[in-house]
């Protein structure tokens, strides 16, 4: 996102420290709810969900000394707006090198908005196998749901207007850890 459209920063919601603490809290919640960690696998939604997923896997390793596998899901082929997009998007690889059948899958994304990405991601997961359960973790829930979808673990509920953009930036992709609310500037 970003690029051509001009936008102004309205608020900084999280910095690196805050993101780290939130992920620690969410990891604790995950450990609390999943007694059988050996059955847990993490699937991150491209792009930022991957890195959030990897960080959580590292935190689980730190706390419980257990390796939880992390896979990557690309949802481009499952979008419901395929015929309406002005420009198409590059299909990238789905890389889930383990079976998800009968597993507890923790689906990870940065921002939960309309819920359509999660709908697409669940369709994608079911094509790869039949998981025992799917749980959803998001760093930010900004509201405006269009589908009956909710997250099991939420870093922060953030009421926004539809015009606003929530930008999650992560070191691995953006060089910095922060969460911003921005708004496109009308010309």
């Amino acid at each position: 996102m970003g690029g051509k459209v001009k936008e102004k920063i309205k608020a900084k919601i999280m910095d690196a420290n805050k993101i780290r603490r939130v992920l620690q809290r969410l990891t604790t919640e995950i450990l609390e709810r999943n007694r059988n960690l050996k059955n847990l696998v993490i699937v991150g939604i491209r792009t930022r969900g991957i890195y959030l997923g990897k960080r959580i896997a590292a935190l689980i390793k730190e706390m419980e000394k257990i390796d939880v596998p992390v896979g990557v899901l690309d949802i481009t082929l499952y979008r419901d707006d395929f015929s309406e997009l002005e420009t198409q998007h590059m299909v990238q690889k789905t890389e889930i090198p383990f079976s998800i059948a009968k597993k507890d899958v923790l689906l990870v994304d940065d921002v939960l908005f309309t819920g359509r990405t999660i709908r697409a991601a669940m369709d994608g997961l079911f094509d790869l196998g039949r998981p025992k359960t799917i749980q959803l973790l998001v760093l930010i829930d900004r509201g405006h749901r269009e589908l009956p979808i909710r997250a099991d673990y939420v870093g922060k509920f953030l009421p926004t207007s539809r015009k606003e953009l929530v930008q999650v930036k992560l070191k691995e992709v953006d060089g910095i850890d922060e969460v911003l609310i921005t708004e496109p500037v009308d010309k």
Binding site: Y78, F82, M90, V91, D123, G124
Partner: peptide, 19 residues
């Protein structure tokens, strides 16, 4: 590059996407 992503689908048990 797109083909590289498509190749993975043919290696799945369910070789189909709804696109």
């Amino acid at each position: 590059e797109t083909a590289d992503s498509m190749a993975e689908i043919s290696r799945r048990d369910i070789k189909k996407v709804p696109t």
